[in-house]
Each structure stands twice: as structure tokens, then as C-alpha cells.
Nucleic acid binder design. Structure first.
Length: 198
DNA sequence: GCGACAG
DNA sequence: ATCTTGTCGC
């Protein structure tokens, strides 16, 4: 797949993103993250209940097919993430992904790509901005639209799919990002184990 | 043309 | 993301 193909795919997916709440209840939240040794991707997905109690955790080791290109993170991480989420036996109501959702040059960051393809409510959680400007109050504007929210100096969130920004903010303020933190720890632990036995 | 650039 | 020393602040 060429970069042009990927960009066309993003523009197409962007039209399918639902920026309104579309779920009955959030009982379980899944966080997914990837760590690397070169192009070997160590991915972890963690499902927790609303009280941050562990429900299930799975790990995978796959090969990253593309290098990282700003704006096209999905090319590098979507594959490993889909592979890992498929391993889960447990269901979940909300997905948390590291990276932006609609706060993206084409309004289709990694979280949108994952959310739309799995048809799951998804929130994008990023550590830094790719685009947009933070306004007083924390909302992030891009092209005259409010597309994200700055939770802290190192956390920006935006809609991935089937959830409103308002609800996304409320849920993260109430439940935090525990599944994502755990997935980060697990993916790095997995990488370290591999590093020691090679 | 130049700089900036999720993970 | 990953590499990577000392250093600033709570």
C-alpha cells in the first residue's frame, strides 16, 4: 500500500466516524499499546471492568509492516493491534488507543481507523499534539472545529468512534486510563523479556 | 521552499 | 516508539 492509498483510505474512513455516543453502557474498557525492538512489535491488550479490576490480558509478537510516518501511524500499528484484539476472549464496551482520533490532519487518526473497522466506541489518547491549537479551557481547535481536549500537559484526547468528546472527557476523568497504562507496561515487559533472551 | 511531525 | 546522563522539582 502506498502513502497515497493510505491517505485515500483515511479520507474514506473519516466519513464513517460517528462523533456521538452510540452505546448502551460502559462496563468494560480495553486498552491496547505497542512497544518495539526495531520492527518487531510487542502488543498488549488489557480489559478491565469499571472499577479497574483486571478481566483479561493478552500479548502478541508480530512484525511491523511499515515504518512510522507522521499522520500515518495506522500503517505501523493497526496490524499488530487488530491481531492482538482478536485474541481476547472477553468482550469490552470501549477501546482506548494510544494516538489521536479525529484530532488529525484528515480527521482520521489511529483511534478512528481502529474504531471504525471494529465498529467499537473508541477514544484516542495521545501524549502530544499532531495538529490543532489548545484554547483556554483545554479544548483543542483545528480548522474552526473543536476536535480534542487537553487533559494534562502530556495527555490529549479525541473521538475515535461512536462516542462524543464530552462523554469521552467524562469517562476518562472518572475512570482514568488504567487499561492503557497496563497495556503499556505489559508491552514493554514483553519486549524486555525478549531482549534478555536474544 | 522551510519547518513541524501521534507512536 | 527508542536511545540515554545528569538534573530540576514535588
Amino acid at each position: 500500500m502506498t502513502y497515497d492509498d493510505a491517505i485515500r483510505m483515511q479520507n474514506e474512513t473519516a466519513r464513517k466516524v460517528v462523533m456521538q455516543d452510540d452505546f448502551s453502557q460502559i462496563n468494560r474498557i480495553c486498552g491496547v499499546d505497542v512497544a518495539y525492538i526495531g520492527d518487531v512489535a510487542f502488543c498488549s491488550a488489557v480489559v478491565m471492568d469499571k472499577n479497574s479490576q483486571l478481566v483479561e490480558s493478552v500479548d502478541s509478537e508480530t512484525e511491523a509492516k511499515h515504518s512510522y510516518v507522521p499522520g500515518l501511524l495506522m500503517l505501523r500499528e493497526a496490524g499488530p493491534i487488530f491481531d492482538t484484539l482478536e485474541m481476547l476472549k472477553s468482550s469490552y464496551d470501549l477501546l482506548l488507543a494510544n494516538g489521536h482520533g479525529v484530532l488529525h490532519p484528515r480527521k482520521c487518526g489511529l483511534a478512528c481507523h481502529i474504531g471504525v473497522n471494529l465498529d467499537k466506541p473508541t477514544i484516542g489518547v495521545a501524549k502530544s499534539l499532531l495538529c490543532g491549537n489548545v484554547k483556554p479551557g483545554g479544548f483543542v481547535e483545528m480548522g474552526g472545529e473543536i476536535l480534542g481536549y487537553q487533559v494534562s500537559s502530556k495527555m490529549y484526547i479525541s473521538v475515535g468512534h461512536k462516542i462524543s468528546l464530552k462523554t469521552a472527557i467524562a469517562i476518562l476523568k472518572e475512570h482514568g486510563t488504567e487499561p492503557l497504562k497496563k497495556a503499556d507496561i505489559n508491552s514493554k515487559a514483553q519486549k524486555m523479556r525478549k531482549g534478555l533472551r536474544t
